[in-house]
Design a protein around this nucleic acid. Structure first.
Lengths: 108, 108
DNA sequence: ACCATATGCAACCTCTTGGTTGCAAGATGG
DNA sequence: CCATCTTGCAACCAAGAGGTTGCATATGGT
């Protein structure tokens, strides 16, 4: 169950490991749900490029799109950020545990 | 200063967004510093592939290598994980702020 | 001095990524 | 109904990522 989290977090990290996508996440976060055209206005690249990035984010579960009418609106799913956070915390916890073991070893 | 953090965190996310590299980080964390041959024993790929991954991690500041003698030993730099954590926290904080504004808007 | 070990370097290969363009097609508003 | 707006789809492309192999080089132990 723990290892599944780690596996899962890889896709989240990979999705956030691109400047454009991280900016998309930040914008969706600050400005709320937005359509593709509105989102692409903020970037110096084509609408289709933004669409591809949205699909990557969707694949990582970070974002969800719906289509009421002719425009597709995308919103952030902030719960998925916790997966990455949990992974970081797990690594840090194991690091601390390793330090503890080292300390025990030195003192004995 | 804040935006520099965000820019910086992209490289950390990208470095962690690969299963092999995340496993390397986990191993360095649990088992402490290790040489390249010792690290590559755990993976089904060549030593050079591991070396490349270590250089990517080094580029993100997550890992540091030294060479005492004939083997090069690599260790984790856990402080860099805080950069990613800070970025996640910033996004979450802005999300909460956005929810707060929405609540104000609805109530007024 | 010699041999085994550990690494670095460089060339090479394949598949993916991030981006483009062009065109077709489904809503919308007058 | 028509013009417009927004999107989806597909083909295409250059560059980078991830991996391999072969060879050169430095270090350590005997």
């Amino acid at each position: 169950m723990r290892l599944l989290h780690v596996r899962d977090s890889v896709s989240v990290f990979a999705a956030l490991g691109d400047e454009t996508r991280l900016q998309i996440v930040a914008r969706l976060c600050k400005e709320g749900p937005a359509s593709i055209v509105r989102l692409s206005e903020g970037f110096a690249m084509s609408r289709q490029a933004i669409t591809k990035h949205l699909h990557v984010l969707e694949g990582a579960g970070l974002v969800r799109g719906s289509r009421p009418g002719r425009e597709s609106v995308w919103e952030l799913l902030p719960e998925r950020l916790d997966v990455a956070r949990a992974s970081l915390d797990q690594i840090s916890a194991e690091w601390d545990a390793a330090l503890g073991r080292l300390k025990d070893f030195v003192e004995k």
